[in-house]
Simulated scan of single mutants.
Amino acid sequence: MLELESIDAFERHLREGASLSNVVIQGLDLRRYTRELSAVALAGTVFLGCELEQEALQAALAHGALVFPPISGLPYHPYRGALYTPEELYAGFDPARPESYADTPDARVYQHWAAHGRGTPPTLLEALAQRLHDHAITDAVDDLLAASGPLRKVVAIMGGHSMKRGASDYREVALLSRELTHAGFFLVSGGGPGAMEATHVGAWFARRSEAELDAALGMLARAPSYTDREWLARAFDVRAAFPLGPGDLPACASLGIPTWHYGHEPPNPFATHIAKYFANSVREDGLLTIARGGIVYAPGSAGTIQEIFQDACQNHYNSVGVISPMIFLGREFWTQTRPVYPLLAQLAQGQDYARYLLLTDSREDVMRALVEYDRAQLAG
């Protein structure tokens, strides 16, 4: 079914004289369009959380339309038709007053989630609203990846939230992401701080020099951890000093996929698109599933290790229709500090995905493996 998720798309559809029958209209304020809606066939039309005047609502129901009413009293829109942007989530944030984060939409949604049962909402309506929201976010991710233009070659970088700005491994992730983005890959991550932030910093600087990236990393290092009071302020300072121009998108675009489940970790504002979820399990599975071009594992802890074995399960059983590279950046870390790689290599013996495992300390090896895999997919 055709989906109309913006007023521009809705008006264009009307101007073209196309039918609204069997069309899904999502999250729009249609109170200015009562005359138009009352004059067209609405058989099979689906209104998801749209604002309708009484006359239009009666016409819709009389024609057999399916109407899901808005849910009021929430700091988030369950039927939203697009992904978040940093500008939306951080509206009202003032870098000169880091405490102003508490007044942003991102913080208000987290406060609401925490006050309403966290992962176990106390009412059916709240649980439904959160599930509808997450469904809308998944739909928006699908729309982003299916948008017209060159096919997005999605590669994910996973790693710990505690990776410090100013550390050598943070810079390594940023450099790798910058090179991958410059080579035409679309970078995704869990959208939070640490290695995740480094991923999006690298993508942000895909059209800038390494010297400019290093200058930005120096600015960020003044607040190394997301627990530092000025962590978010320093990020906005870098965005202001090195803005993305009109011609920089989509060349510097990236997708962060955070969750309010870890809402004490603000999403980093360098991802140009943000798919923020309530349900961490849905977020994790979706992130791994869309990374069909491969996943790079930078040093991390329990969350990263969980992602490794969830990804391994997808590859082991080929459950998403593609077997993709699993690349481990940091030999000592993945064989000594967190000896995951030897176990995974043993698990993969005799399986197709064994040939896509790579353990390395080299950005060049990572680039080569991902480029070769991409070429093989295009040729195959």
Rank of each mutant, 00 (worst) to 15 (best):
S301F: 13
D142C: 04
A146W: 03
A96W: 04
P121E: 00
A136F: 01
Q26P: 03
L66T: 09
R283G: 06
L48I: 05
F328W: 07
F10W: 05
M219F: 06
R108H: 10
Q54L: 05
A147L: 11
R165G: 09
E3Q: 11
H182E: 15
L249G: 12
A18F: 08
V238F: 13
S38P: 01
T104R: 06
L52S: 04
T335D: 12
V366P: 05
E372I: 01
F68H: 11
Y33V: 11
L217N: 09
F93N: 03
W231A: 07
A376P: 01
F10Y: 10
F186P: 07
E88G: 00
P95W: 02
W334Y: 03
L288A: 09
A102N: 07
F278V: 00
A147Y: 00
Q336P: 00
G192P: 05
W113F: 14
L74N: 02
L343E: 14
A215R: 15
A18M: 10
A140Q: 00
R131I: 03
E36G: 02
E36L: 08
A312Q: 10
L89I: 13
G191V: 13
G190V: 04
L132G: 02
F278P: 02
P339Q: 14
L343F: 14
R207T: 15
L187Q: 11
P299K: 00
G202N: 01
T335C: 13
T337I: 14
L217H: 04
E3V: 13
A251W: 08
I290T: 08
D352F: 10
R292Q: 14
R222C: 09
P342G: 06
A302F: 15
L42K: 01
L42Q: 06
L42C: 06
Q349F: 08
G81N: 04
H264S: 13
Y297W: 07
D228M: 05
H316W: 07
V67T: 11
R239V: 15
S177V: 09
P267C: 08
I71V: 12
I157T: 11
G119V: 00
A183I: 06
W260G: 01
L4V: 04
P267G: 03
H133K: 01
A235D: 15
T360I: 06
